[in-house]
């Protein structure tokens, strides 16, 4: 039989505690405004990037290549502006998130984002194998306290070997070699 002990998480922060104020404006309003700015910027870029280009109409009756992207951009802009207005007016249904779990370590995700970005930039330069070992060791050491240097290196080398054998040997996918050669 299973005698599984129920798991206990360390997350004790109350839901909805992200409703902090920023200069007197509640976070949901900020989020709604962020939506407005990003949505409008994307829609405007989509509009301007397609504007002024003369599309070659190969078939009579064809509305051209910009009808669909511009329609999508227009829908996006309307929804983004609507969310901003509703957020400012204070309608709870638009800007306010319902229950949201609060991250236990909010900085953790940005460390992982930076590590992943570094890995993706460096790998084609120094080679996939070396970059993967360096990335996995850095990942293990920064995201968990339990890894010692030697165990992190062993795990990283094992994982890299597994991936290289699987892709290069079995699936015949050549991985980037870089300046070091592997």
């Amino acid at each position: 039989m299973f005698s599984a002990h129920p798991a206990r998480t360390d997350e004790t922060a109350a839901p909805g505690s992200n409703r902090g104020a920023r200069g007197g404006v509640s976070e949901p309003t900020w989020k709604a405004l962020e939506w407005t700015v990003v949505g409008c910027a994307v829609a405007l870029t989509a509009w301007l990037a397609g504007g002024g280009r003369s599309a070659l109409v190969l078939s009579p009756g064809d509305p051209g290549p910009w009808l669909v992207p511009w329609s999508a951009a227009a829908i996006l802009a309307v929804l983004a502006i609507g969310s901003g207005i509703a957020g400012l007016v204070g309608r709870r249904s638009v800007g306010a998130p319902r229950e949201q779990e609060t991250p236990a370590r909010p900085a953790g995700r940005w460390i992982v984002v930076l590590l992943s970005a570094g890995y993706i930039v460096v790998a084609p330069v120094i080679g996939f194998g070396v970059a993967t070992v360096v990335f996995v060791v850095s990942f293990l050491k920064t995201t968990s306290q339990r890894w010692r240097w030697w165990s992190a290196v062993v795990a990283a080398v094992a994982l890299t070997l597994y991936v290289v054998v699987l892709f290069e040997k079995l699936l015949q996918v050549p991985l980037p070699r870089g300046s070091i050669g592997w």
């Binding site: 299973f2 997350e11 953790g108 460390i111």
Partner: peptide, 22 residues
């Protein structure tokens, strides 16, 4: 991965299984 990096994880359960009776 990005999302879960900011959340602490649960403790693992100890599981034993008797397939036949179950």
């Amino acid at each position: 991965v990005f999302r879960s990096a900011s959340h602490r994880l649960a403790r693992r359960p100890d599981a034993r299984l008797e397939i036949r009776s179950a």
